[in-house]
Design a protein around this nucleic acid. Structure first.
Length: 567
RNA sequence: CGGGGCGUAGCGCAGCCUGGUAGCGCACCUGCCUUGGGCGCAGGGGGUCGGGCGUUCAAAUCGCCCCGCCCCGACCA
């Protein structure tokens, strides 16, 4: 295409509202414009890039037997009420009313619609398994859209849904998706990690997330470089580092001592001269409206996800100061488990086997020493601790890293949640009704683009992987006033097209600097510069990533790019 | 939803404190010039100063209310 005819509104400066790199570059390079918070228009360049990403996703989904469909974005409320998610999703679901005041919503995923199709049509085990997918716009009323395309209210997702007769069938479908996702992210030029994930409100027995490391992300994952263990921090397990000081021996009796003004673990550690790991951290929590005391080693953090799971609770929160005073008789900083009745006490596994520790006395400005779990108080034991960097891997013992990541894809074994609640059953070989087991598998299309930019950029702009760049090569005559350069550039451009390359001819009447800067900014992987060396029959082939330039004969330029692009 | 910041030309900003004809840079248009990293000269177009109400002879500027956007937190298959 001819650049002079295209709408590529590049900006010289960064728009003030953009914070993360991908957002800044998407705006500067003229890929997107914002319409409202979390709602973007995808201009020409973004659309080309997204189309390439979608084509890759589609090919890989088709390769595992997926059947593409196009489903409604508008869903009747009844559908979501059947599955129970109308209430569960609450305000995150975009609600709409039609002219007759009927409730509808804009679909944030399509489990309900897919299941409603399946239950009307799938009758026999012979029709299973099925893999159905769709690539389309979804909506979420995010409480806080942010970071450009990374957290938005309207976005394109590839979602697929599988229907199987039994768990073994689901395992196969799940595995196929796992492998397809690896191929998709590989082809998009992303380096990613697959992590065990928390299934959250989706339920189900197993789920994995596909993450790429980035400071722009919002999820943390724990990764073991040695054995490959990787899990979302919500779910990760590890062996805690040893306590900094050995516990005092002996069967000592709890003893109250004064700790005036010492509220935090760190203050008490300093006051007593004993490390934080010699204390019991006592957190007054409220799980589904009921008080609970959660105990951890002093230097450990509570994982709210694990805590909620241990309590079987939907909603958890820290107790308010007044509640602590009523239930325990002291303020945060002086709480402890000794003598607590009337509320469950649960303790993290790292407290097991410890002796003679320090904890709050449930009296302001007092603590207890010589407190031994199991003797001086009783508590249910659970894994409650959030993994921290430096913990050792539970599998192999190597130190774990914690990385900030962006979630690009998530695969779930759903189980029977939707087929049961919405009545999807088929007849099995024996003629009896059988339940259908489902899986669901999502990929955020825009997130692939944003993540690729986060991962591939430099001071001049994007350095996109060729398979997802909007164009593969740009042909740039340095001085378009010179007929020889103009003609040679045009010829090379046509040869590129003939070679099957996505080529762009920068025929604008601009100074060379402008053309180079723009090409760098929008991240075209290859540039053929037609300039002075044309007199000697040569042009320059520049690769965007490493800025390496080499001279090639005019007649071989297109073939040279084709060779590199398909390498 | 809590905390913070911002809203003046397409983009980046000054002006506001101390009320008095709305400015700068970039971008854009015309002409000349120039052509290997966002060139130079000359001329020009473009503004409900986020919105409403109020104070005042007079409001971008002061007061009140509202809206929008960004950041932190809460939230987040």
């Amino acid at each position: 295409m001819l650049w002079s005819k295209l709408f590529i509104p590049t900006l010289r400066e960064n728009p003030a509202e953009a914070e993360v790199v991908s957002h800044q570059l998407l705006l500067r390079a003229g890929y997107v414009r914002q319409l409202a918070a979390g709602i973007y228009s995808y201009l020409f360049l973004a659309q080309r890039s997204l189309n390439k990403i979608i084509a890759i996703v589609r090919e890989e989904m088709d390769a595992i037997g997926g059947q593409e469909m196009l489903l409604p974005a508008l869903h009747p409320a009844e559908l979501w009420q059947e599955s129970g998610r109308w209430d569960v999703m609450g305000a995150n679901l975009f609600h709409v009313k039609d002219r007759f005041q009927r409730d509808l919503c804009l679909g944030m995923t399509h489990e309900e619609v897919m299941t409603s199709i399946a239950r009307g049509e799938l009758r026999s085990y012979k029709q299973l398994p099925q893999i159905w997918y769709q690539i389309q716009t979804k909506f979420r009323d995010e409480p806080r859209p942010k970071s450009g395309l990374l957290r938005v209210r309207q976005f394109i997702m590839k979602d697929s849904y599988t229907f199987d007769l039994d768990a073994a069938g689901l395992d196969i479908a799940y595995d196929k998706h796992h492998q397809a996702y690896c191929r998709i992210f590989d082809r998009c030029g992303l380096s990613y990690v697959t992590v065990e994930a928390h299934s959250g409100a989706m339920g189900g027995s197993q789920s994995h997330e596909f993450m790429i490391a980035s400071d722009a992300g919002e999820d943390y994952v724990a990764v073991c470089a040695q054995c490959g263990y990787a899990a979302n921090l919500e779910k990760a397990v590890s062996r805690a580092t040893a306590a900094a000081t050995a516990d005092p021996e002996g069967d000592l009796t709890p003893e109250k001592f004064q700790t005036p003004g010492r509220k935090t673990i760190a203050e008490v550690a300093e006051f007593t001269g004993l490390p934080e790991s010699s204390q019991i951290k006592s957190l007054a929590m409220v799980a589904d409206g009921k008080p609970v005391l959660a105990l951890l080693r002093g230097d450990h953090q509570l994982s709210e996800t694990k805590f909620a799971a241990a309590m079987g609770a939907q909603e958890i929160r820290p107790a308010h100061p007044a509640e602590m005073q009523t239930w325990l008789g002291a303020a945060a900083g002086s709480l402890g488990p000794v003598g607590v009745t009337g509320m469950p006490v649960i303790a993290d596994a790292a407290l097991q086997g410890r002796r003679n520790l320090i904890c709050g006395a449930n009296e302001d400005d007092y603590h207890l020493r010589h407190v031994t779990p199991g003797e001086d108080f009783q508590a249910q034991c659970h894994d409650l601790r959030q993994v921290a960097a430096g913990d050792t891997c539970a599998t192999c013992g190597a130190p774990l890293e914690v990385r900030k990541t962006i979630e690009l894809g998530h695969i779930f074994k759903l189980g029977y949640k939707y087929s049961d609640s919405m009545g999807l059953r088929v007849l099995d070989a024996g003629g009896k009704e059988a339940r259908v087991i489902m899986g669901s598998y999502g990929i955020g299309i825009e997130r692939i683009l944003a993540a690729a930019i986060e991962q591939h950029h430099d001071k001049d702009g994007m350095t996109l992987p060729a398979p997802i760049a909007p164009f593969t090569v740009v042909v740039t005559p340095v001085n378009s006033a010179e007929a020889a350069q103009r003609e040679a550039a045009g010829r090379i451009y046509r040869e590129c097209l003939a070679a099957g390359l996505d080529a762009l001819l920068d025929d604008r009447d601009e100074r060379p600097g402008v053309k180079f800067k723009d090409a760098d900014l929008i991240g075209i992987p290859f540039r053929i510069t037609v300039g002075k060396k044309l007199a000697g029959g040569m042009v320059e082939l520049v690769t965007r990533r490493d800025k390496q330039s080499r001279d090639v004969p005019v007649g071989e330029a297109a073939a040279a790019v084709a060779g590199l692009a398909h390498a």
